[in-house]
Amino acid sequence: MPRKVLQVIESAYRCTIEEQDDPVVWITHAMKGAGANVHLLLRGNAVNYAVKGQAVAEVNFGTRHQRQAPRIDDDIASLCAKSVDVYVVEDDVAERGIERSELVSGIRTIPRSGIARLFGEYDQVWHW
């Protein structure tokens, strides 16, 4: 049985335009594809990654039109579809005025007070 790892993302939208995704969400997809038993906890500003219907304005510099804007909510939803457990800290969600109904389906919520217990369920915690 592969060891079970929880990836924690806190820094949000750090380079999503240039990368067309979040690098930690991306590497979670890639490692899952390689057989990893990886899961995800979104906390702080990163809880916004789970809000559905995000739209990124097109980027244009002069005549250069940048295609393929990031679709972070889709990336999160497809992790859920791949049986990756994706948690958001409900206190962080509430503090940002986000309603539960705004989150992509399949997201699990956890109170801040439950994070330590959640960590205990994993062999390793990777805090990016």
């Binding site: 592969p2 060891r3 790892v5 820094s11 590497i27 890639a30 490692m31 390689a34 990886v38 990016w128």
Partner: peptide, 22 residues
């Protein structure tokens, strides 16, 4: 290498330390 190599290394290691960007 690729993320698969990272996972392989992590699986074979006693522990992993992530020093992420902020």
């Amino acid at each position: 290498g690729s993320p698969a190599d990272l996972w392989k290394a992590a699986e074979a290691s006693d522990n992993a330390l992530i020093i992420g960007a902020r």
